[in-house]
Simulated assay, not measured.
Amino acid sequence: MKVNRSEFIISAVGPSQYPQDALPEVALAGRSNVGKSSLINKMINRRNLARTSSQPGKTQTLNYYRINDDLYFVDLPGYGYAKVSQEQRRKWGQFIEEYLTGREPLKLLLLLIDARHEPTKDDVLMYEWVRHFELPLVVVATKADKLPKSQWQKNVKIVKETLGMPKDAPFVLFSSETGMGKEELWSLIESAIGYKDPNLDENLMNTP
């Protein structure tokens, strides 16, 4: 997908604030500081549309970013940050669960895992929860550039085995620094939302 326009739309905390234009939505989940904002910025070729933070737990809402007029990226609050109160975590969990299980335009969930480390208990719980509800899912292992290339295969195996992923489950090794995995991830997103490149249709029409 060629991104011509991207913009931040709203920070939502409930259904009354969600966009009502029925564009397909791709949500991003993962623990705090796993790189959700950096991934969004890389996918849309922008440096600072999705704000990154060195302070874990900063995202406390569903942040909607509209891409062209084709889809939304929805950045979910990061999980697993110890300094967030139990009550706050309960509230986040409640509205995230309501969104993931009840939002009709949601077409795909990207579950981000730090490729450098074995998935945490929270990562495993999130993965199992998503599988239980049979949500369309792609696991994205981030920060690949921070690993020597010689360790990629080993760490990918650890991530997949710890989560208990089926062999054919979609998986992308990604780097927000180098762009590794970007095209593969776009291909999976396009398939999930039923995207058709209008330029291809135009080219076919113009073919003698």
Rank of each mutant, 00 (worst) to 15 (best):
N4L: 14
E7L: 07
F8T: 02
I10D: 03
Y18P: 03
P19S: 11
P19L: 10
P24Q: 05
E25I: 01
L28D: 03
L28V: 01
L28Y: 01
A29K: 02
G30E: 08
G35D: 11
K36A: 00
S37E: 10
S38W: 03
L39N: 07
K42N: 13
N45W: 09
R46M: 13
L49Q: 07
T52G: 10
S53H: 12
Q55I: 15
Q55K: 15
P56W: 09
G57W: 08
T59Q: 11
T61E: 10
L62M: 09
D69A: 03
D70P: 00
D70G: 03
L71F: 15
L71S: 03
L71D: 00
F73L: 08
L76C: 14
L76Y: 03
G80I: 14
A82V: 13
Q86W: 00
E87S: 13
E87H: 13
E87Y: 05
Q88K: 12
R89V: 08
R89E: 11
R89T: 07
R90I: 05
K91F: 11
G93R: 14
E97W: 14
Y99V: 04
L100S: 00
L100F: 04
G102R: 09
L108E: 03
L109M: 15
L111R: 06
E118Y: 00
P119R: 10
M126E: 06
E128L: 15
W129Q: 14
V130L: 15
H132G: 02
E134T: 04
L137T: 02
K143T: 12
D145P: 00
K146M: 14
P148K: 08
K149A: 12
W152E: 10
K154C: 01
K154E: 13
N155W: 09
K157P: 00
V159E: 06
K160I: 10
E161C: 01
E161N: 10
E161F: 01
L163G: 09
K167L: 05
D168T: 10
D168E: 12
A169Y: 00
P170G: 06
V172E: 01
L173Q: 05
S176L: 05
E177K: 14
T178I: 06
G181Y: 09
G181E: 09
K182P: 01
E183G: 02
E183S: 06
I189A: 05
S191T: 13
A192V: 08
G194V: 08
Y195N: 10
Y195C: 11
K196N: 07
P198G: 08
P198E: 05
P198F: 08
L200C: 05
L204D: 08
L204V: 13
T207N: 07
P208L: 15
